[in-house]
Write a protein that binds this DNA or RNA. Structure first.
Lengths: 339, 339
DNA sequence: TCTTCGGATGTAACCGGTTTCTATACAATG
DNA sequence: CATTGTATAGAAACCGGTTACATCCGAAGA
């Protein structure tokens, strides 16, 4: 049952001033006599007057809202970035609208439209489907179209078909950190499992994997790098293949493309009673601390990702931010799995 | 760089009709001749005109937005409910605004205020701090104040100090399901770990635990029920105590107040090389499938919780929903840990 | 032929703020 | 004393829609 709330006019009337004056008192950006100021503030307090943000948005043509589109908030990576972004946005007077696309381009388009109609001032876009094989041409166009009207920033994603600013974890650096650590631990035989070719984030990691091995003058055995996918099941499968193919020459340390893949590999090893591998994950999700053993993992610069994304969008209201691609270094969290 | 978008007036001018007509064509709730209809629709398409939701909200006095306040979206329970709520809300033309309170009453108040100013039509409130020992009196007042103006619904929480509709998992039923299952597996010695007295959800579970044991005519050994808390560490501690206190008379099956607690207990058992317990968790979060062994757990009726919450809020716009407290039965997902 | 009725459309007020422009009063300056 | 400047405040337009009310017109009924 709706109920009308009091407006700036109610305050103005009772204070015997005009609405303009009340507005000025609240904004505080214009000289108002101390006497009126007090009168107005007292009334605001008395009635607990709250300005109507919708009306304000309309006149000021700024909604103070930012949209966030991501595949699935259940994924700890996205959740963490979102939380940081939200925390920061709040301090800047912005409100976030979260949209789960569930990896459906249809939903994505729908959300894009809703956000645009709601006059969000910018959109933070995260998701694995953003890569060079980005499949839906129709959707690129939709997104391109939106980008022309609303500032969009990609987090941990690149669209090679689209010019759009982005901010990402320096994943190559992450892989390098892992390998440096493993080498220091005495490993010389290192494998990599999970991911898919063609997906930007995988490609970056695989390339960094090769380069880092080279840096340490270690052999890059082809069969020690196995694509499979991104979830627990895929991790298990990859590990299964690893054991089969390299029966007589197994690596001693294995890097997973993300934490889930490592969980899968760990499960398989547990079943087979093979506890002789060192494992390293990527994302530093909660999983790493809950598994047995706890998993060494690369932690994303969550705070920076969330804050910078919001910041860039706010800035692009006034400045013409060029489509730059920012990278931030991650760090390695060492746990039981590599000791 | 903002950029003015085209308005209903632009369309009206080019179609040689009034804005009212365009509005009617879009709303489709008023007779308009086929000819004008076509003219208008063609122009809408030509310019990809999108109605300004902010302006619409202002006149219609309905924002079509619902606020969601929860402690931490990183928690899979909240995330899951949120996703279901969002999915459903979208089909009803509503947009959700997610606010993480991080269990801080200060943040909670801030969010409450922002949501209220943004004219949300309702608020979904979830969180552990809602219980009879709800600590911040100032905050109750704040919330009570909001409830008077905006419909609020609690999900899996009750505030005894406040009359407010709620929708919850029938957690007592969940405990009953667990014990029925364990008994069927032949267990007669069952323990419960985790949680805190005074927190509604724990109290409900503990009571159901006693009653269900009674139902099966099983002894309720006091030292088999150990409070500790809600996270992995607390689970570990509780299990430690369990082993110490009941050295000579241990239960054979142990229920955790939630999944995390079970993870902790499992870790301890793994360290101590004791693999002889059956474990059951609560929440059916992803954790249960990623751990070794996979954990039997009670699954919340996520879909119903999310949908009903949204539904109730939408309904309360037109009907005066009385403060009823709805309960929905959960179901048990059986996995390796109890086989 | 004159009403009457309903379909189709326009006019204008309104939602609740912000802001430009203008007006007033009073102090300072020449 | 006339002039200029400054602090304060109001009037009114505006943001982009929706809708109550008025109007016009042609068809149907008396």
């Amino acid at each position: 049952m709706k109920q009308k709330s009091i407006t700036i006019y109610d305050i103005a009337r009772e204070a015997n001033v005009s609405s303009a004056t009340v507005s000025r008192v609240i904004a505080g950006n214009y000289p108002v006599s101390e006497k009126t100021k007090k009168k107005v503030f007292d009334l605001i307090e008395k009635y607990d007057y709250q300005p109507n943000a919708v009306a304000r948005s309309l006149t000021k043509k700024e909604s103070k809202m930012i949209g966030v589109i991501l595949p699935d908030i259940t994924n700890p990576f996205f959740a963490q970035v979102f939380i940081e972004a939200e925390k920061y946005a709040l301090t800047k007077g912005y409100t976030l609208i979260l949209c789960n696309s569930m990896n459906s381009s249809e939903l994505e388009s729908k959300h894009l439209r809703v956000l645009s109609e709601r006059q969000v001032e910018g959109i933070i876009f995260m998701g694995g489907r953003i890569n060079k094989t980005y499949p839906e041409v129709s959707e690129i166009n939709e997104l391109k179209y939106v980008i022309e009207k609303i500032p969009v920033i990609l987090v941990n994603g690149r669209m090679e078909t689209l010019e759009c600013p982005s901010i990402s974890t320096n994943e190559a650096k992450g892989i390098e950190l892992i390998i440096d650590h493993l080498v220091k631990q005495g490993h010389t035989k290192i494998g990599l499992i999970g991911g898919m070719t063609g997906i930007t984030t995988t490609d970056i990691k695989v390339e960094a994997f090769r380069k880092s091995l080279e840096k340490h003058k270690l052999a890059a055995v082809n069969s020690w790098q196995i694509y499979s996918g991104y979830d627990v099941k895929r991790g298990k499968e990859a590990m299964e293949e690893m054991l089969k193919v390299n029966k007589h020459n197994l690596p001693t340390a294995i890097i997973g493309i993300n934490d889930l893949v490592v969980i899968g590999a760990l499960k398989l090893c547990h079943q087979k009673k093979m506890n002789n591998f060192s494992f390293v994950g990527f994302d530093d999700s909660e999983l790493t601390q809950n598994s047995i053993p706890e998993i060494t993992s690369v932690s994303h610069p969550y705070k920076e990702l969330g804050e910078k994304a919001v910041d860039m969008l706010i800035k692009s209201k006034t400045t013409d931010v060029k489509a730059e691609n920012l990278f931030i270094d991650p760090h390695l969290v060492i746990r039981e799995s590599t000791i």
